[in-house]
Write a protein that binds this DNA or RNA. Structure first.
Length: 471
RNA sequence: GGCUGGGUGGCAGAGUGGUUAUGCAGCGGUCUGCAACACCGUUUACGCCGGUUCAAUUCCGACCCCAGCCUCCA
């Protein structure tokens, strides 16, 4: 058996060996998007990071239940729905579909479960009732609120002391709160707002309770891994712990994992700065795989600054890998190729993806240096099996290179049919054989102006569509 | 003000108490009619000041700077 997977646990602030409660059923929950708009690059980072973790866990454990929710009722969704005069379900459906498309383009595999809040209202109400019964929550002016002082462990995840938080609070305390830190479990809806009947009147759930309720319903009272962006540590995850622990009288989650933020050109993404980068828009500049690689090229717990240079660099690397793979297509696959031991080992060390990429480059060199068909097939399959752990290099090379060409920014090439290109390449080869180099060079220029790059190899000339971004 | 992370060579980015990853770019070379692709070689590092140590980029302390959270946010 290989060494265990080590993960940095936000709760303990250290890297520790991952030991699931029940290895026969490993549970992981990641906070998904609120579906009121298209996914931006900051939404994509956790999706990609936890996709890699899920792949790693699945390789190790027979059954992994990975859930990622959709928050489909929320004031922002309500506002978006009101703006276009559509029901919230329509807005949510639209952006859930868009989210699926975007994540698919980034090579993110579907989680096992994608629970939606609006489909879990009875469970949410039930959980709130349990909290009230146990003395951890109360009802005031149509609101149900969690009483923070009733849970002594509050603040442990974020490393904050309640007294500091009160001192630093910048918001006015709502009159219905018994304690400034108390947070809403259920809030009343006026008639135009979406709402559901409850013992406390018509209303809708607060943000924090939904995750706890869906976790309790689908994964259990104690889960193995809970993930999300680091901005969720406080208050969202802190509140989840309080609710879940108090409702079920059990540890809520053993390992908390948080990815760091994405900045754009050194600044936080925000609507006011106008620098929110949507995955949709980036997909016009580069294939999803290059975006995925760019997101994975920094360790998940470090801040990642998104720049055009970063994406360009990722394009170059993707191109290099697929160029080598393209040259080995047609070789029979080798049976039962395992991922590389080094790749596996560094990934198991708190998901050191950049370290794994280094090893992938070494495997690439092995492929490029292999001098027999058997060696090349082995090197290729070794590389592919290893890259598969990261969700990379799994496309048909020719198609991947074509995707790079199609997304080349700032270039519009006249379209030459494949037959025409082949004819020109053949004509040039003939000219070269006749040592008519002026003619050969003219043909090469003609092809280049159409975005076709010719490669003269010992076996003869081949061609690819350019993927170079102009400087 | 409180709480988290982080500051590594032109850029990106791992890691380590002593043997200076890796990628991109640059430079030199091999291949090529010339290129391109590919391969080989190669220059420049560890924010600042103290401390511990035979030895610190790596451990400890202070400081400076950056990002995030404390209010919806991945």
């Amino acid at each position: 058996m290989n060494a265990s997977i080590c993960l940095h646990n936000t709760l303990t602030r250290r890297k520790e060996p991952f030991q699931p409660e029940r290895p026969e059923r490993v549970t992981m929950y990641v906070c998904g998007p609120t579906v009121y708009s298209y996914a931006h690059i900051g939404n994509a980072r956790p999706a990609v990071v936890f996709d890699v973790l899920a792949r790693l866990l699945r390789r190790r454990y027979p059954k992994v239940v990975y859930a990622r929710n959709f928050t489909d009722v929320d004031d922002k969704i309500n506002a978006a729905a009101e703006a276009v005069g559509a029901p919230i379900g329509q807005i949510a459906d639209r952006f859930i579909n868009a989210y699926h498309e975007d994540m698919c383009a980034l090579g993110v595999l579907a989680p096992d479960l994608e629970p939606r809040v609006t489909e879990h209202i009875p469970g949410i109400i039930e959980m709130i009732q349990t909290l009230i019964t146990r003395g951890h929550a109360y009802v005031e002016q149509g609101h149900a609120l969690f009483h923070v002082p009733s849970y002594p462990g509050y603040g442990r995840l974020s490393g904050r002391r309640p007294e500091d938080m009160i001192a630093g609070a910048r918001v006015e305390v709502a009159p219905y709160k018994r304690d400034p830190l108390d947070f809403v479990l259920w809030k009343p809806s006026i008639s135009e707002q979406p709402g559901w009947d409850s013992p406390w009147g018509r209303g809708r759930p607060g943000w924090h309770i939904e995750c706890s309720a869906m976790i309790g319903q689908h994964l259990g009272h104690t889960i193995d891994i809970h993930g999300g962006g680091q901005d969720l540590i406080f208050p969202h995850h802190e509140n989840e712990i309080a609710q879940g622990t108090c409702a079920h009288n059990a540890d809520y989650c053993k390992t908390w994992i948080h990815n760091s933020f994405v900045t754009v050109d050194g600044q936080k993404m925000s609507k006011s700065l106008g620098n929110v980068l949507l995955v949709r828009d980036l997909l016009a500049q580069a294939p999803g795989e290059a975006i995925r690689l760019a997101l994975l090229s920094t360790h998940y717990r470090r801040p990642l600054d998104w720049t055009v240079q970063r994406l360009a660099a990722a394009r170059t690397v993707v191109q290099r890998f697929y160029t080598a793979l393209e040259r080995s297509t047609g070789l029979a696959p080798v049976k039962f190729t395992e991922p590389d031991a080094t790749v596996l080992a560094v990934l198991q060390d708190d998901l050191n993806v950049p370290g794994a990429l280094v090893r992938l480059h070494e495997l690439l060199v092995n492929l490029e240096q292999a001098d027999t068909d058997v060696a090349r097939a082995q090197a290729r399959d070794h590389l592919l099996a290893s890259a598969g752990l990261l969700g990379l290099l799994q496309q048909v090379p020719r198609a991947a290179l074509a995707a790079l060409h199609q997304t080349t920014p700032g270039r519009a090439f006249p379209v030459l049919g494949t037959a025409r290109i082949e004819a020109l390449v053949a004509e040039r080869e003939q000219a070269r054989q006749q040592r008519d180099f002026a003619r050969a060079d003219a043909l090469r220029d003609q092809l280049a102006s159409a975005g076709v790059v010719v490669h003269d190899r010992p076996q003869g000339s081949t061609w690819t569509l350019t993927t170079e971004v102009p400087a």
